[in-house]
Computed example of a mutant assay.
Amino acid sequence: MIYLSVEDLKLLQQMKPIVEKDIDYITDQFYQTVLGVDKLQTIILEHSSIERLKKTLREHIIEMFEGTINEEYIAKRLTIAKIHKRVGLEPKWYLSAFQNLQNVFITVIYNETGKDNERLKVVQTVTKLLNLEQQLVLEAYEKENIREKEEQYLLVKNELKQKIAEFSGELIDLSIDTNAAVEQLVASSNEVNDTFRRTAASALESQGMATEGHGHLDSLTGQINLIYESTHAMERSVNELSSSSKQIQKIVAAVQDIADQTKILSLNATIEAARAGEHGKGFSVVEGEVSRLAEDTKNTVVRIGELTEQSGSLTRQVVEEIRKVQELTQSGRLQSIETSQLFSDIVKSMQVSTQEIVTVEEEIKVLIQTIEGIGSSTAQTAASAEYFKKATDNL
């Protein structure tokens, strides 16, 4: 494309003696310009020396004017390009240096050539040669950059694949562990839910039993009230009985007085019968019967009095026991009222607790559904991680 021909190569051979004669001038001018750039000077001093590079440049320039371009020639230029790339020489510095080298060549050609048409021909040929040199080096630069990028890409790719594989593996393991934990949590939540259902059922049953107990307690309170009222009635009856016993005792006392008086009369009758003699015998018989009747009446009245006294004593004991029963009944009545109130509070509390248990049961159902949703998402994550890992392996 640059039309570098065999005639150009022959012309280069013809220029070789002139170049060899001015080679020191050419190299000195070249490095004078290069060393004027601090960065280029730093690169040179870090990897080589000025004299060594001048010697290498002399050989390189003279070889350019040998007029021979073959595989060896190209291989050397590619090697130079790799060295430049390795030491960090950027293409812009390389192109600038070659531009300066081209300026030096034109100056030498102008000074060593007499005719303008010859100068033009030589300048064109040298320009073609330098252009070829630049093409070879820049192409090598580009290939080296591509190779480095590919190596970097492969390095990053492999590292990324490794990291992704490790991450995917860890994600799979984590997803499996998470899924297992979620399944265990779901099972535990179901057990808790079953326990809550049983607790709710027990609470409802206990609430029913408490309500039933409250009813029985109300019935018992009613019965205690009836007993309490009955003891009052019994107390009144016993009091009336006691009053009757007292009246009987009074009657007994009166009868006893009558018996005593009858006995006195009987004794008087006996005295009078004795005085009457034979005429008082019939009266004596009557007196004996009256005396016996008085004695029997007295004995009977004494027995009735003893029984009445015993009945009164028993009545007093009954009254005392009835009072004790009244006290116990009153205490039981109060305790029954307090227990009834306590049962009412228990029933209300159990109603609230039962409602709370039912509410918690519903919340646990929602929680189980949420956990199952998490488990499903975790399983999908594990599947995605497995797919991601396989896709990474195929990169």
Score class of each variant (00 low, 15 high):
Thr381Asp: 06
Ile44Cys: 02
His216Arg: 05
Ile18Ala: 14
Arg236Lys: 15
Lys39Thr: 12
Leu136Ala: 08
Ser237Trp: 04
Leu160Thr: 07
Glu183His: 13
Val123Leu: 02
Gly222Pro: 09
Glu170Val: 09
Arg86Leu: 09
Ala253Tyr: 09
Tyr228Phe: 09
Val347Tyr: 14
Tyr141Phe: 11
Ile80Asp: 01
Ala391Trp: 04
Glu170Gln: 07
Met209Tyr: 11
Lys55Asn: 04
Glu321Ala: 10
Arg316Ile: 08
Ile322Asp: 06
Glu320Asp: 15
Lys250Leu: 14
Gln249Arg: 03
Asp173Ser: 04
Lys16His: 10
Gln223Met: 03
Lys21Leu: 12
Phe388Cys: 14
Phe105Asp: 01
Gly312Ile: 00
Leu129Glu: 03
Glu327Gln: 10
Val87Tyr: 10
Gly277Arg: 10
Leu35Asn: 02
Met1Gly: 11
Val286Thr: 06
Glu235Asn: 14
Gln32Lys: 02
Gln102Arg: 15
Ile61Phe: 09
Thr329Tyr: 03
Val301Gly: 01
Arg52Pro: 01
Asp38Ala: 12
Ser243Cys: 10
Asn268Ala: 12
Leu342Tyr: 01
Ser353Gln: 05
Thr297Gln: 06
Ile74Tyr: 03
Glu229Met: 13
Gln13His: 07
Thr221Tyr: 15
Thr113Ser: 05
Gln184Ile: 11
Pro17Ala: 05
Val318Thr: 05
Gln29Trp: 01
Thr68Arg: 08
Asn100Arg: 13
Thr370Asp: 11
Asp8Gly: 03
Gln184Cys: 11
Met209Asn: 15
Met15Leu: 15
Ile83Ser: 13
Ala203Asp: 04
Ile176Thr: 07
Asp218Ile: 01
Asn103Gln: 11
Ala181Asp: 14
Ala294Cys: 10
Arg236Asp: 14
Val137Glu: 01
Ser313Pro: 00
Asp38Glu: 12
Val126Met: 01
Asp173Met: 01
Ser242Ile: 13
Val301Ile: 00
Ala259Ile: 03
Leu185Val: 08
Glu144Phe: 13
Glu362Tyr: 02
Ile368Glu: 03
Ile258Gly: 02
Glu51Gln: 12
Ile224Thr: 08
Arg77Trp: 08
Val87Leu: 02
Arg333Pro: 11
Arg303Phe: 03
Lys324Ile: 12
Ala276Lys: 15
Glu306Ile: 07
Glu166Gly: 06
Glu90His: 12
Thr33Tyr: 06
Arg197Lys: 05
Asn299Tyr: 00
Thr262Pro: 05
Lys115Leu: 13
Thr211His: 06
Gln355Tyr: 00
Leu334Lys: 04
Gln335Cys: 01
Gln134Lys: 09
Lys390Gln: 11
Arg198Leu: 11
Val352Met: 07
Lys82Ile: 07
Glu327Met: 09
His279Met: 07
Glu159Asp: 00
Ser206His: 10
Lys115Asn: 10
Asp345Lys: 08
Lys324Thr: 11
Asn117Tyr: 01
Lys16Leu: 09
Ile176Val: 09
Val238Asn: 14
Gln99Ile: 06
Ala294Ser: 13
Asn131Ser: 10
Glu235Lys: 12
Ser202Thr: 14
Leu4Tyr: 09
Glu320Phe: 08
